[in-house]
């Protein structure tokens, strides 16, 4: 098992955002966590990355327990995140953003080769190479954020609400890229999404979250057919 999260509890002061959620992810899998706004999805990803502390629970990654590691140590273990709203480094150029993603890896990866591959994947980034990231559109920033995570050849990619604020055509494109990365490169991906339809379509499995607890889990194809899930999350 690549990622095993057991009984995660996350609180902000008195507010309990996540209440005992457990899930796992096998190597090569694409798994979604879906749910409405405020269900605790982003808290879970931030908890895995170590950006918010866990109140209770444990996380194992690649057989090692990472629960007590700092964020940057988890990143070094091979986890990368595409944060909500991209969080590119606004005043750094596109190129510098990518290089920051490759920080500390110059001996392990061939940076020039990775950049050439990412330019193939997202041609717009090549065009914008020397522009500050804050001059990019929302969609371009999302692409940069994904590329910045991918440059490190992560073992696990966490993707937080990548569809937020993008036009529908771009959402499809971005999800297509994630599907490709999973299928063609065997990249393990955990997607957290409000756009349940788009993410279920590309996922193997999914967990459905409601106010901090997991209410359904199963194969994505089955959840797409499930009448209850359909009614609440897919708008049918």
């Amino acid at each position: 098992m690549l990622l095993d999260a057991h009984e995660l509890h996350i609180s902000y002061g008195d507010i309990r955002a996540v209440n005992g959620v457990s899930f796992d992810l096998q190597e090569g899998e694409l798994v979604s966590i879906i749910g409405a706004n405020g269900a605790g999805k982003s808290s879970i990803l931030n908890g895995i990355m170590g950006i918010v502390p866990l109140r209770k629970g444990s996380i194992h990654f690649d057989t090692d327990e990472i629960t007590s590691l700092a964020t940057h140590q988890r990143a070094k273990a091979g986890i990368r995140m595409v944060p909500e709203r991209a969080r590119v480094f606004p005043r750094l150029t596109v190129y510098e953003n990518l290089m920051a993603g490759a920080y500390g890896l110059r001996k392990r990866i061939k940076i020039a080769k990775q950049i050439a591959w990412l330019h193939d994947l997202f041609p717009i980034l090549k065009e914008r190479n020397n522009q500050p990231a804050n001059t990019l559109s929302g969609g371009e920033q999302q692409q940069l954020s994904i590329a910045r995570a991918l440059i490190s050849e992560p073992k696990l990619l966490l993707v937080d609400e990548v569809s937020m604020g993008l036009m529908p055509k771009l959402v499809d494109q971005v999800f297509e890229v994630l599907k490709q990365l999973n299928r063609d490169h065997g990249l393990s991906i955990l997607v957290v999404e409000q756009n349940a339809m788009a993410s279920l379509k590309i996922s193997h499995r999914a967990y459905v979250l409601e106010t901090g607890t997991c209410v359904h889990e199963g194969r994505a194809s089955e959840l797409l057919e499930d009448p209850k899930v359909k009614e609440v999350y897919l708008g049918h």
Binding site: H72, R91, Y103, G104, L105
Partner: peptide, 21 residues
């Protein structure tokens, strides 16, 4: 690289940390 790491932290601390900085 140290400078780039500092700039990244200045711009978005948690994003930089989740890159191993």
């Amino acid at each position: 690289w140290a400078g780039l790491a500092c700039f990244a932290l200045r711009e978005e601390e948690s994003a930089a940390a989740s890159m191993g900085i």
